[in-house]
Structure formats: structure tokens, C-alpha cells
Design a protein around this nucleic acid. Structure first.
Lengths: 152, 152
DNA sequence: ACAAATATGTTATAATATAACATTAATATT
DNA sequence: AATATTAATGTTATATTATAACATATTTGT
């Protein structure tokens, strides 16, 4: 399977998951939201908001910054995508609603992102919070560095 | 000791540490850099770049965005302050150069920041990276939520 | 004293994001 | 079905965050 084919199937799978989840949860995955989600998945790595806006404009020339940012907000709130805080960028979530704590390995060299979800990390977040009498709400955990592929 | 006094002494201590470290490492803590570092420590929580710029302008009316951003870059590179990626904000480091991995508990309610450094977290970063054949460079770990004080 | 490197000054603009209000579409209520 | 309510989208304007590019000054090394 070619890279492009693989990406297409990942994207299609993500879209199906998103539709199913919105159905179940009574969320409206409108035409606009679906288009944006599709655009996000179309790129192999992460996407920047204004790049997304440029893509969207090709479909809907009247699109403007609030169009994108509102849609991103919806997708983030409902766990369909994540914001990478250290990059001001966005990326599709591979397992929406399974849980809400995701961690990222960001390759500085090839821009690829690895989404990691580990019990160990969750435990550390929980224990760190507990030790400080802190009630966690949103966790940002991003490790930038070099991926295996780029080391060679 | 009053809150203000405490803050003053924390700030003074931080400044002394910064001076000592720059001395040792052959870094130039110029007048501008020291002023900015002082302004950062003067606030109890975190600071935004343009707020800092406004403060700096009171001392030096010719200050402009690059003045602040360049100075922040120097301070970050040399471990004297941290950038909070999820807030686009800056905060002084309590233990510059002791190590470079710091984690933050950010109270959404009172804006106070707790700087946490834990072996456990370092271990998780190391093991997560290793499991993914990833060489970590910069870690962003920020937990937003509610602090003990704000729960009551 | 001179060259090179570093730091700062200055202008302009890029990149990221939101406020505020208008309109349209979907849903619920009578 | 008509109406009210809520949710989504459209639109204009502007706020916020950050950097590029080039000029000048200061410090450091030779």
C-alpha cells in the first residue's frame, strides 16, 4: 500500500469514527466541520490554522479566520483533534473519546508526530497533581526531539 | 513576612542566582537583560510579553517588541526563565541550571503557577522516548486545573 | 588601533487569534 | 404549520503574539 493510499484510509477511518461518535453523542458534524476535519486528516503531520484556512478557501471562498477557529474549537472540545501548544498547530486524534489525555512526540526534523497514550504518564499526572493538591483539568505534554527515522 | 516582602526576597534571590550563573558561564547579563528579568520576577505569577514590554517602556521608552523577545530568548536559552506554551506566557525559573526539565501546574482560577520537578516525571519522559526510539530535546509539560487554594 | 563578534535600536510586517454583531438554519413549542 | 428558541455560520474589524531585515553601538579578541 502506498503512503498516499495509507493516508487516505487512515483519514477515511477517522471520518467514520467521528461521524459515529457525533451520532452517539448528539453532536452535529456539519458539512463545514466535516470538511475541516477532512482537511486536517489529509495532511500526514500537523496543520496550521491559516494553512487550513487557505485550503478551505479553495472549497468555500468566503471562509475567514473565525470560520476556521470556531470549527477547530468544536473539534477540540469534542476530542476529534488536538492542539499542539508548542507549535500552535493542530492534529487529528486517532482514538477520539477513548480517553482525553494524549501525549506527543514531535520530530523537529521531519515534523512527524507520534501520539502516545500511556498509563504510566497518566499515573504521573495523577500523582503529581495529588501531591500538590491540584485538580487537573487539561494536560499538555509534548516532547520535541528527533525521531528514529531522522537519526539515520 | 508580607506577601510583597516575600516576593521581593524571592526576586532578589533569583537575581543573585542569575548573576552568579552568568558569571560562571561567561554569559552577559546586561543591564537590559537584568531589567527584564527583574520585571518578570516582580509579578507573582506569569507574565505576558507585551505586558512586560509596557513595563519596560516605563524605564526605557524606546523599547519595542524585538527588545523584549530577544531578551526573553536569551533568558530562556540560558534557563533563567521558562515559556508556558499553553498560555504564551513567561515565568522565572526557581533553580536555573540545576536541570532543564520543569513541569508546571497552572491554576485556571487564580493564575498561580507551581513549578514541579520530579524524578518520576523525568523517568516517564525518558522511558516514553526510549520506547519510541525518540531522542528528546525539549519537554513541554503543563497541567492546567484548580489549585488547592481555589478549591475552598 | 583594528577587526570580528555580540548586543541593541528601529522599521515594518507576519502569524495567530478573538470580539462583536448580523444572518441563516435547525429544533422545540404551541 | 407558525412561532420562538437555540445553535451555527457569515462578516467586519481588530487584538495579540512574534519575527525578518537592516542599522547602529558596544564589547572582545588580535
Amino acid at each position: 500500500m502506498s503512503k498516499r493510499q495509507k493516508n487516505l484510509s487512515v483519514s477515511a477511518e477517522a471520518l467514520r469514527k467521528a461521524e459515529a461518535l457525533c451520532e452517539i453523542n448528539g453532536l452535529k458534524l456539519t458539512k463545514l466541520r466535516k470538511q475541516v476535519l477532512k482537511l486536517i486528516w489529509r495532511k500526514p503531520g500537523y496543520v496550521k490554522a491559516y494553512d487550513l484556512l487557505d485550503e478551505l478557501k479553495k472549497i468555500d471562498p468566503s471562509a475567514k479566520p473565525p470560520t476556521i477557529y470556531r470549527t477547530l474549537d468544536f473539534l477540540i472540545e469534542n476530542g476529534l483533534i488536538h492542539k499542539l501548544q508548542s507549535l500552535n498547530a493542530f492534529i487529528g486524534c486517532h482514538h477520539p473519546h477513548e480517553h482525553n489525555e494524549c501525549y506527543f512526540l514531535i520530530c523537529d526534523s521531519c515534523q512527524k508526530i507520534e501520539e502516545c497514550c500511556s498509563k504510566k504518564i497518566n499515573n504521573v499526572v495523577a500523582s503529581t497533581s495529588k501531591n500538590n493538591n491540584f485538580i487537573p483539568n487539561k494536560v499538555t505534554f509534548e516532547i520535541a526531539g528527533t525521531c528514529q527515522n531522522c537519526l539515520n
